[in-house]
């Protein structure tokens, strides 16, 4: 298994170089280094001299990808792309173009993101699986039909509507929770409660339908019939045997997103004033801060690759028949 992990990690290197290159090209197709400098220096009284100085200080005075005037290998290394990319592979994110330490910012902002994402995932799993089990148990009945209709209705509503309606109902009308804001530590629960509930409800439709399909497929198998014939209570059968055997497709969807929980949710964080990582990248794009954009895209790619690897590893835990080679 170790060899498999090492091989997968080595595969990740060219993928990360490619992602980095695409991010770089896309960013600089839209923004020239001069644009970036002007954006950071402000709109008023900016002189060409100040733009040039800013570029030199922030390493944007080199050619983008290929330095025609440099000798040998420096034609590739004396470029903005190389200078800005190589340190990422050592997870040295450096300073943002505005001068703040990106690593420090990420380490501060990932906790509020996790404070929403983790409870939403765990509570969501509990509620969505239970809901799907219920539908699977009453398959073909009016209860199942009602559940499926409810799921389709929930899926048809925009995520933004849940947020605005939730804030309107629970904060503005009922005065039960703060409409937005955040406090670190245990006090965070008051601010996290509503986003988590909204997160769980808004995903109930799609997740419930997906899990129901998985469970229905599993319920039709021979071992379920055998277990029933032996008199196993239905609830135990569902939550012990069916759930365990349905874990492979469930894990495929869950483990891959686990590392990405750090990255946060843009809309949720924005509306609830949660100071997480979700809005960090968008803010950076708006402010044309390439240092943050490349760091966040790189981090997202690394976490996604890690998620895929963890998914593969988790298969071996839930299904001993699977061997990684």
């Amino acid at each position: 298994m170790l060899a498999y992990i090492i091989r997968r990690l080595l595969y990740a290197i060219p993928i990360l170089v490619g992602v980095n290159l695409i991010t770089f090209v896309l960013f600089f197709v839209v923004n020239s280094p001069d644009d970036v400098a002007r954006m950071h220096l402000g709109m008023k009284h900016v002189t060409p001299d100040a733009v040039e100085k800013w570029k030199v200080e922030h390493g944007y005075d080199q050619p983008l990808l290929y330095n025609r005037d440099a000798p040998g290998v420096e034609q590739l290394t004396d470029t903005i792309f190389f200078e800005k990319s190589v340190k990422l592979f050592a997870f040295e994110f450096g300073s943002s173009d505005a001068g703040r330490n990106i690593g420090e910012d990420i380490s501060q902002r990932m906790w509020p993101s996790l404070a929403i994402a983790l409870p939403t995932l765990l509570l969501g799993l509990l509620v969505h699986i239970s809901f799907a089990m219920l539908l699977a148990f009453f398959r073909g009945s009016y209860l199942d039909l009602s559940g499926v209709i409810l799921s389709v209705v929930l899926m048809s509503i925009s995520g933004l509507f849940y947020i605005i309606a939730g804030q309107f109902l629970f904060s503005k009308v009922l005065h039960l929770v703060p409409i937005s804001g955040y406090e670190p530590g245990w006090q965070a629960w008051r601010f996290v409660l509503l986003p988590v509930v909204i997160g769980v409800i808004s995903a109930l439709g799609s997740s419930g339908r997906w899990y129901r399909t998985i469970f229905l497929e599993e319920i039709g198998r021979d071992y379920v019939r055998t277990a029933r014939a032996k008199g196993l209570p239905e609830l135990k059968l569902l939550f012990t045997h069916v759930l365990k055997n349905a874990m492979v497709p469930i894990l495929t969807g869950i483990v891959v997103v686990l590392p990405l929980l750090f990255m946060g949710s843009l809309i949720m964080e924005s509306f609830f004033g949660i100071p997480g990582l979700g809005s960090y990248t968008i803010e950076a794009i708006q402010k044309q801060d390439f240092a943050i954009v490349r760091a966040m895209v790189f981090l997202g790619s690394v976490l996604y690759i890690l998620g895929l690897l963890l998914t593969d590893l988790s298969y071996t835990l839930v299904d001993p028949r699977i061997r990684l080679s």
Partner: peptide, 14 residues
Amino acid sequence: LEKEAIPTWNKFLQ
């Protein structure tokens, strides 16, 4: 920090 106008406005009214 308030990024959206709707929560900001509602908090003012509250």
